[in-house]
Design a protein around this nucleic acid. Sequence first.
DNA 1: TCGCACAAACCGACCAGACGGTACGCCCGC
DNA 2: GCGGGCGTACCGTCTGGTCGGTTTGTGCGA
Lengths: 194, 194
Amino acid sequence: MRSTHVADRVTAAALDLFATQGYATTSVQQIVEAAGVTKGAMYHYFQSKDDLLFAIYDRMLALQKSHLDQIVAVGGAVEDVVRDVCVDVVETSIDFLPEGTVFFRSMHMLAEPRLKEVTQRRREYHDEFAALLRRGQDEGVFRTDVPRSVLVAHFFSDVHYLSHWYSPDGPETKTEVAQQLTELFLRGIRTATT
Amino acid sequence: MRSTHVADRVTAAALDLFATQGYATTSVQQIVEAAGVTKGAMYHYFQSKDDLLFAIYDRMLALQKSHLDQIVAVGGAVEDVVRDVCVDVVETSIDFLPEGTVFFRSMHMLAEPRLKEVTQRRREYHDEFAALLRRGQDEGVFRTDVPRSVLVAHFFSDVHYLSHWYSPDGPETKTEVAQQLTELFLRGIRTATT
DNA sequence: TCGCACAAACCGACCAGACGGTACGCCCGC
DNA sequence: GCGGGCGTACCGTCTGGTCGGTTTGTGCGA
């Protein structure tokens, strides 16, 4: 850890502290102390405290982007596609649990243009998912008596809530949880029964 | 508004600002300005900034307590009981949407003993719900291939996520959303099909 | 009905400290 | 010797919170 580069140590410490304490509550003093670095060194690599936040966001942004591309390309029976997508989203959300926590806790800086980009990407994400569900509805596989927006929210609520209860040290592996949550979701939105 | 009592105006302004900006980001200056009150007046009724936060929490706490008592008293077929509970929880969560937002955004002050009380009540809440689900599992109505803790999280994720997408001004009424989310959840956790 | 006394309500100027950020100089590899 | 990487001392600002004093409401004796 000591041998790793200064910038990496700082971002790692910032991610940890932001996730546990929140952005506004964490001071740059705390960050540089946790990273074993002086303030001068930190401000040599980052322009501001906000920069640290956006560095974290950027990681999620890249992740979401790659996700989106992957998902759309896949074909097959709509229910299988949705299943794959859901499992994948949950798993990677677990991998990036701290980043997600920081993001969801610090969304109040909506004026920031840089944050808007992440939020927009997030919206595209949801829209893409909604389009997938629509395909299922058109094929008569998914129920139509509930608004699609509610269906979408119903899934992403699971993803979002992960940071409030899931622990990698807990009894369930991320794969298990991903499959279980996906199964619960799919059963909920299906018309026919299997 | 101007005629209402000072303390009420302050708590209302604090709730609004905390919900939109977050606790740490909001200064007492902002609060007293929004409430049309001087800082001296505010500190006459509240001991500290934290006091304002706990005043908001207390409202949720009382709500949860009354909920818990009501729910346990009710009898009937387990699925109907669960359905009633879920609908009720979602509806009241919508009524107290800002309070919920503030609570979920400011949980990082875990050292505070007063916050632990709210958190503990929340845990009891979940445990009570888990016990209900267990009854359903014992009767063979709810599936047992998914850990009960995951089932509980699957429901409360919906409740928690409401503040991120639901708007009273939107197309769906709170009753509709409550019934729809409950239906999705119930379908997901049932063994048999109806 | 008035005057008075006393407490509660409220004001606004004022801390001490912490905050994010900067200026400047050292120091070491090239 | 020179330039990027980094340490240190420091700045202006804003923060939560305080404090002495003033106003306002209210009960009560005459």
